[in-house]
Amino acid sequence: MSIQHFRVALIPFFAAFCLPVFAHPETLVKVKDAEDQLGARVGYIELDLNSGKILESFRPEERFPMMSTFKVLLCGAVLSRVDAGQEQLGRRIHYSQNDLVKYSPVTEKHLTDGMTVRELCSAAITMSDNTAANLLLTTIGGPKELTAFLHNMGDHVTRLDRWEPELNEAIPNDERDTTMPAAMATTLRKLLTGELLTLASRQQLIDWMEADKVAGPLLRSALPAGWFIADKSGASERGSRGIIAALGPDGKPSRIVVIYTTGSQATMDERNRQIAEIGASLIKHW
């Protein structure tokens, strides 16, 4: 058993032996400061991975655009179909130039040979490839079927209504393609630790998130040596930015963190910096 498999397999085991986890309101002070700095709403939640207890939250039940963070949920739905014998990670999917949409750094290189379902999930999560996400959405029946999958998990909040890139429109008060921090954190925890997916599929999902290559300026920039993080970021119109993550010290995840912001006029660099500073406060007061 690899170190990674050891880590995921023991998450339920550690729940019975973990020390009490204490919240630190200092992080919420930073979240509120980020709102002031960005001139935008910020949603935040910090969840204990083992118990599911909410440690801190700010606007946990307000809607925010999901942006590309939905791609983790999408690959969770794909893995659920794999577990049920309805899909194979090794199945190759062929597509054409007409299928390519904006920001497809991986799929645009494989027009001649296509990509496997496994490769598409990797591209969608680690590189946020939009065509990969659309191709995967097609395999499960489209955005409405992803919403149905989430409903069956008990998440009646999170919804996907459109495809890439239209889902990134982020119109104020538009509930399409949105979630709430509390709903996203709970759903992510179920995917990573619950019985919905097999152990192998849970491991695969967290491996893809751990290999994320496009979230460096966010929480990863504040991470001390030896800490673990598996994450997925997102960005969209109207100053929207977000990240969902499982992270913790000693090389294993122990908390879920979800951060969303929307409605800012700030630059992408400034949005990144504010999220990184929230992460730094979280780690300092861990």
Results as ranks from 00 to 15, higher is better:
residue 156 H to Y: 10
residue 225 A to H: 14
residue 129 D to V: 00
residue 22 F to Y: 15
residue 254 S to D: 15
residue 197 L to I: 06
residue 181 P to L: 02
residue 235 A to R: 00
residue 40 A to N: 08
residue 14 F to V: 15
residue 107 T to R: 02
residue 57 S to R: 09
residue 64 F to L: 11
residue 228 F to N: 02
residue 212 D to Q: 10
residue 22 F to N: 13
residue 259 I to G: 00
residue 17 F to L: 10
residue 285 H to G: 06
residue 125 I to T: 04
residue 226 G to K: 08
residue 128 S to D: 15
residue 195 E to V: 05
residue 279 G to V: 07
residue 131 T to G: 07
residue 82 V to S: 07
residue 7 R to Q: 14
residue 189 R to H: 15
residue 137 L to C: 03
residue 172 P to F: 08
residue 170 A to G: 11
residue 44 Y to M: 06
residue 117 V to G: 03
residue 17 F to I: 13
residue 139 T to P: 03
residue 185 A to G: 11
residue 81 R to W: 05
residue 227 W to R: 01
residue 90 G to P: 08
residue 150 L to M: 08
residue 61 E to K: 13
residue 84 A to R: 15
residue 18 C to G: 11
residue 92 R to V: 14
residue 9 A to E: 08
residue 39 G to S: 12
residue 67 M to K: 00
residue 243 I to E: 02
residue 268 M to P: 07
residue 219 L to K: 01
residue 167 L to T: 07
residue 280 A to K: 15
residue 82 V to W: 07
residue 237 E to S: 07
residue 220 R to C: 02
residue 52 G to N: 07
residue 27 T to P: 15
residue 206 I to N: 07
residue 97 Q to V: 12
residue 188 L to M: 10
residue 77 A to V: 10
residue 60 P to D: 13
residue 50 N to R: 15
residue 93 I to R: 01
residue 200 A to Y: 10
residue 83 D to Y: 02
residue 86 Q to K: 15
residue 264 S to V: 06
residue 146 L to I: 06
residue 11 I to D: 03
residue 182 A to H: 12
residue 21 V to L: 09
residue 19 L to G: 14
residue 147 T to S: 07
residue 89 L to V: 05
residue 223 L to I: 14
residue 114 G to S: 04
residue 241 R to S: 02
residue 35 E to A: 04
residue 6 F to V: 12
residue 234 G to V: 00
residue 24 H to Q: 08
residue 10 L to W: 09
residue 15 A to P: 08
residue 56 E to S: 09
residue 49 L to V: 09
residue 38 L to E: 06
residue 98 N to G: 13
residue 189 R to I: 05
residue 39 G to R: 12
residue 29 V to L: 13
residue 139 T to L: 10
residue 260 Y to N: 02
residue 228 F to V: 05
residue 65 P to S: 06
residue 7 R to C: 08
residue 201 S to R: 06
residue 188 L to T: 07
residue 41 R to V: 07
residue 181 P to S: 02
residue 182 A to D: 07
residue 106 V to S: 07
residue 65 P to Q: 03
residue 129 D to S: 01
residue 239 G to H: 07
residue 266 A to R: 11
residue 168 N to Y: 02
residue 54 I to D: 09
residue 240 S to R: 02
residue 138 T to S: 15
residue 234 G to A: 02
residue 88 Q to K: 15
residue 40 A to Q: 07
residue 250 D to M: 10
residue 213 K to M: 12
residue 153 M to H: 09
residue 166 E to W: 10
residue 248 G to R: 02
residue 136 L to D: 00
residue 247 L to Q: 01
residue 3 I to T: 13
residue 277 E to R: 09
residue 176 R to V: 05
residue 225 A to E: 14
residue 239 G to V: 03
residue 225 A to V: 12
residue 64 F to V: 04
residue 46 E to K: 06
residue 226 G to N: 11
residue 262 T to N: 08
residue 68 S to G: 03
residue 164 E to K: 03
residue 163 W to F: 10
residue 127 M to V: 12
residue 213 K to A: 13
residue 276 A to D: 05
residue 156 H to Q: 12
residue 211 A to Q: 15
residue 180 M to E: 12
residue 186 T to D: 13
residue 44 Y to D: 01
residue 212 D to L: 00
residue 48 D to V: 03
residue 285 H to V: 05
residue 74 L to E: 00
residue 174 D to V: 02
residue 257 V to S: 00
residue 106 V to I: 12
residue 281 S to T: 14
residue 79 L to A: 00
residue 21 V to Q: 03
residue 93 I to A: 03
residue 85 G to E: 09
residue 21 V to T: 11
residue 277 E to G: 08
residue 12 P to E: 07
residue 39 G to C: 12
residue 173 N to Q: 10
residue 16 A to T: 15
residue 182 A to R: 14
residue 152 N to Y: 10
